[in-house]
């Protein structure tokens, strides 16, 4: 799989950046391009391509796991995932919080 260009992302959909801890699900790929209109739908689409990966980001009640952050472009997502709309060209980052002390 080749890396998507900015033009391709804008045309095809949303680019999701995969953290190292979850690349076992994506056969090592660090980014995936998906068609989704909101963050909850993005996770479902991601899971249909890479089964099990959604469970690592949200629990079975759909709540984001503590210390797992989603950034839409450069903004930390603080609202419920289904309310966060996506458009072609967006970039979603899945990142663990630093959780340091």
């Amino acid at each position: 799989m080749s890396r998507a260009s900015a033009g391709e992302i804008a045309r095809i959909g949303v680019l999701v950046r995969i953290p190292p801890a979850l690349r076992s699900y994506t056969a090592g790929e660090d980014e995936v391009v998906l068609d989704a209109s909101d963050l909850a739908g993005m996770l479902k689409a991601l899971d249909s391509s890479f089964p099990g990966i959604r469970d690592r980001v949200v629990d079975e009640s759909g709540r984001r796991r503590p210390y797992v952050n989603l950034f839409l472009n450069e903004d930390l997502v603080m609202t419920p995932l289904p309310t966060v709309a996506l458009k072609p060209g967006d970039v979603v980052h899945i990142l663990p919080s630093v959780a340091g002390g």
Partner: peptide, 29 residues
């Protein structure tokens, strides 16, 4: 936990002496 703490719980399985891997799914309500 899966890999490290933030990624949720997992059950691992492996042959003795080798690195265990997460099973295909974890217990869920």
């Amino acid at each position: 936990p899966h890999g490290a703490e933030p990624w949720g719980p997992a059950v691992y399985r492996g042959r003795i002496g080798s690195e265990p891997k997460p099973t295909s799914s974890s217990p869920k309500f």
